[in-house]
Design a protein around this nucleic acid. Structure first.
Lengths: 231, 231
DNA sequence: CGGTCTGTTGAAAACGATCAATACGTGTGG
DNA sequence: CCACACGTATTGATCGTTTTCAACAGACCG
């Protein structure tokens, strides 16, 4: 019962978490009854690509990746998922991507049918799901533009900007990357080497500082944002 | 009143048109009352990027493009839209893409608010909208994979395959391209020259035949599909 | 007939990928 | 504590694909 409300408060979702937005205590209570807490350690699959898409998830804490791996071994990361993100909305029979944890990951799991039934009864929930679909769509269009039109260094800058906006705790002076260079490469449609070289170049140009491989600080935010500019 | 039902039959939507799927006569009637027929000639905008997103559209006949143009002039085509396709589903205030006709284009226009109200009252319609969102999402993920992972010749083959599946009247022996090489390039994240060269190469390899610049015939479908393979 | 738009082809340049070597960091076992 | 191995990141050299710049061909239209 307090399953939902407790992390809901502790992680301070409030407005961040689109799933719960605007719901009253009674509605949250009903929602919590159909939720189940699930905890994963590093590099575990929340669900595999092609598995029956019978569950949906709301990230409570940790970071994960949404990835598609083709039969010839190429991998594309569709998104990094952060606390408050909601995963699994699709009418397809099977997931067309897998979701894997990059860190310890805590999620709420909903049975697809339960959640959809509930969404029909609770208009706020139904509206939130619609809103989530819309946001995911919008994010995906941005990625299409990035992959179709941007140069390597623009893509990297865009990702830095995106991390700044979305990664919990990220500040220009300190971005703790939870993902490897390979993950970044597969997200941006580049190779590890190109990502590494691009970061080195940005560092040489004085735009960023690479404190450790997984800790980056942005020295010239304006310049990074300008290079990233999608508009 | 027969606004909807007449083209609905004449263009033989039936199962093709996801918006009307499974709806009974009475429901179709209500839907038709909130629809308005709109006819465009070549190269007209159905709506512009950044315009307030207060209308939604269902393509009756013709072909259009969904495009995003950035302020530095780069253009990415998100999709080609064909009869039966539904456009404009998003909760954003403004369209993040524009839609332009490539040929004469006939559409049904719905006021956003009307359609959403109706969707709340007619479960079938609401379900269809959900299904449409899901299909669009799935299509967009495919494009992300294409842009992030495929080589130029694989992208072109994928597009040929896609045209075959989606373009009305397309057969392996005869695909009438409604779009220019530039449109293809901006869809596939390539340049015109690369698209042209790739098609010439496919022709030289005996996989396709270029009857006229806008008429292509696939000679070796299996080979084209193998190169296109996304899986 | 000349102009414009679209498509094709060629040559050169640039960008990113690939192959290969090296560095760095962390954890393990001697 | 040090030596070593393993995974990850960086850097260098080279290769290949795609872009860019440029010329030309064909279709359509005034």
């Amino acid at each position: 019962m307090t399953q939902l409300s407790s992390p809901y408060k502790s992680v301070s979702f409030g407005d961040d978490c689109m799933l719960f937005k605007g719901m009253n205590k009674c509605e949250l209570d009903r929602l919590s009854k159909s939720a189940r807490l699930k905890v994963l350690t590093k590099q575990q699959y929340l669900f595999m690509q092609h598995a029956p898409s019978d569950r949906l998830f709301n990230i409570v804490s940790g970071v994960g990746i949404m990835e598609k791996v083709s039969n010839n071994g190429r991998r594309q990361i569709f998104a990094f998922v952060y606390p408050g993100d909601f995963i699994g909305l699709s009418n397809a029979e099977n997931y067309q991507y897998g979701v894997k944890s990059l860190s310890n990951l805590t999620v709420y799991e909903f049975k697809r049918q339960n959640l959809f039934t509930l969404a029909d009864e609770l208009p706020t929930l139904g509206g939130n799901l619609k809103e989530i679909r819309s946001v995911v769509m919008s994010h995906t269009f941005e990625q299409v533009y990035l992959l179709g039109q941007l140069k390597a260094y623009e893509r990297v800058c865009f990702m830095l900007k995106q991390l700044l906006n979305r990664l919990p705790g990220a500040k220009p002076s300190n971005i703790e990357l939870p993902m490897t260079r390979t993950d970044i490469a597969d997200y941006l449609g580049l190779t590890v080497e190109t990502v590494s070289r691009t970061l080195s170049q940005l560092k040489a140009d004085g735009l960023i500082s690479i404190i450790s491989p997984n800790t980056i600080s942005i020295l010239n935010l304006k310049a990074v944002e300008e290079l990233a500019n999608i508009s």
